[in-house]
Computed example of a mutant assay.
Amino acid sequence: MTDPETPHSRWSDLDRPPLNERALRRGLIRPGGLWTSLDVVTTTGSTNSDLVAVASSRPEGTVLVAEEQTAGRGRMDRRWSAPARSGLFFSVLLTPGDNVPVHRWGWLPLLTGVAVATAVARSAGVDTALKWPNDLLVTVDGEERKAGGILAERSGDEAVVVGIGLNVSLRATELPVPTAGSLALADAVSLDRDTLLRSVLRSLEQWYVDWREADGDPATSGLQEAYAAGCATLGRTVRAVLPGSVERVGEAVAVDGDGRLVLAMASGGRYPVGAGDVVHLR
């Protein structure tokens, strides 16, 4: 019999029970719904990398969840790591091409942010703000902390894999950097990962289906308004580090119809940022 205190035992941290794969499937996969399969693996390098590799042979709505990621990735190839079963680490396969023009696919990470924030507020009682374009922020001891992130990657001409990482039960001593946070540190009313994952996927399904039925139009679907309402970047002075190490500093005043962050420059002009790293200056 395996010693339950060994590092490799799935029960070695009873505060962090494993996800109930069977119950998750039962609650999320239904005829006519978006989610078509859901698999939970004990550990993997990156759920995004795994799903991108098999995207051409899998249907839309495939969900891959890992209890632990050893090579999780964020934007700009940043690494994402956390103790096993301390968060939600999963990727979903979406194929919006039949309804949504490709130029609107850039809204998918922003849509996912709205869906996650909505679900976390509902299920964990934590107000989650969005930092453009794809960070999830919570308040810990009066300070904004990053508790999650989103990474969208194209796979071929038809598919997009969207990965979500969310710190749930990380303790202060387990944070990878001092500016990180978790739902536990933000005083969540619940840290039940099964409930959180069901809530996030149901919220994501609702937002995605509404957006797709609106042909990806962010205004008609209500996505643009919802994102702006929850975006902590708007109204602040920011520094945008653009590809090629070019920097722009201005006040973030809007998210336009293409999902770009619009900066009001000191010179009086406006500058749309479509890609880059944004730092909140105040």
Rank of each mutant, 00 (worst) to 15 (best):
T36I: 02
W105R: 06
R282F: 05
G222W: 08
V279P: 00
G142K: 10
E213W: 00
R248A: 14
S57G: 12
R248H: 11
D256L: 00
Y271M: 12
A172T: 14
D217Q: 09
V114G: 05
P31S: 06
G142W: 03
L151A: 04
S199H: 04
G216I: 00
E144G: 11
L151N: 01
G74N: 10
P109K: 01
L111V: 08
A229R: 15
T118L: 00
L170V: 06
E21A: 15
A129H: 11
L185Y: 03
A124N: 12
T47K: 04
E251L: 11
D77K: 13
G222D: 11
D192S: 11
A121L: 12
A252H: 10
V238F: 10
R104K: 14
P96S: 06
V278A: 06
S81N: 04
G244A: 08
S12I: 10
A229F: 09
L223I: 04
E205M: 08
S46C: 00
T47G: 01
P31A: 05
W105D: 01
S37A: 15
S91V: 01
P83V: 04
R236C: 05
G142A: 05
P176C: 06
A240F: 08
R122E: 15
G257N: 09
S190P: 09
L38C: 01
R30T: 12
